[in-house]
Nucleic acid binder design. Structure first.
Lengths: 103, 103
DNA sequence: ACTTATAATAAGCCATGACTTATGAAGATA
DNA sequence: TATCTTCATAAGTCATGGCTTATTATAAGT
């Protein structure tokens, strides 16, 4: 499983994406996340593990708690991938599709 | 299942992403895709169906074949989502994380 | 008309993944 | 030390999803 695979897979689950968005909004602990979401604490921990392995979040101990925050560079590869299809190349391709019709 | 969910889910599978990338590179038929990939034709069709429902590809009949091409606007929502965490906001957040340490 | 090519769908199999409850480890607090 | 909180991991359940082969429909070519 490549790094890119892990990244896309991590973002695929809605609950996990919600966790990521919360963490991105404000760094917080596991219990705090669990309180605000309709799943158990272990579920949260499991999601955080996946997000961490995809380098989307970092964690830092703070006493008995563990504070999770966004990893600023984690979305870099996603943007890089996206940019391969966006902008000029895509616009050009779009034009080709609309005009030409060679079979 | 929301539209965003469908988009992320569609991109999560490596095989499906490979299909999308091929189609983005050059519009082609199902058989053509099947020939170049290590899965069966029905598998390709199933993936294309998911990609189409996520609005990532379009299809157009051409005789007995069906030509699939990229949908230029399909990646828009992904970029929109990404931009919510990128740039200014993320840079600012990164700075906060690195300087402050309020628990 | 018959055969071939193309592609979608149906049905079934199997691995993966998202969740649960139970438990244990590590720190904080009395 | 004893208790409470916090969090990760283990184990088990269940649904989903990606694949296969089989089949059908449609179009092309002979």
């Amino acid at each position: 499983m490549t790094y890119e695979d892990r990244l896309f897979a991590a973002l695929a689950d809605p609950t996990r994406r919600a966790i990521f968005e919360r963490v991105a909004g404000r760094r917080q602990s596991v219990a705090e996340l669990a309180r605000g979401m309709p799943v158990s604490q272990p579920a949260i921990s499991q999601h955080l593990k996946v997000l961490k392995e995809a380098r989307l979040v970092r964690d830092e101990p703070s006493g008995a708690r563990r504070i999770y925050s966004i990893d600023p560079e984690g979305l870099g590869p996603l943007r890089a991938w996206l940019d391969r299809f966006w902008s000029d190349q895509l616009a050009a391709f779009k034009a080709v599709v609309e005009t030409a019709d060679d079979n």
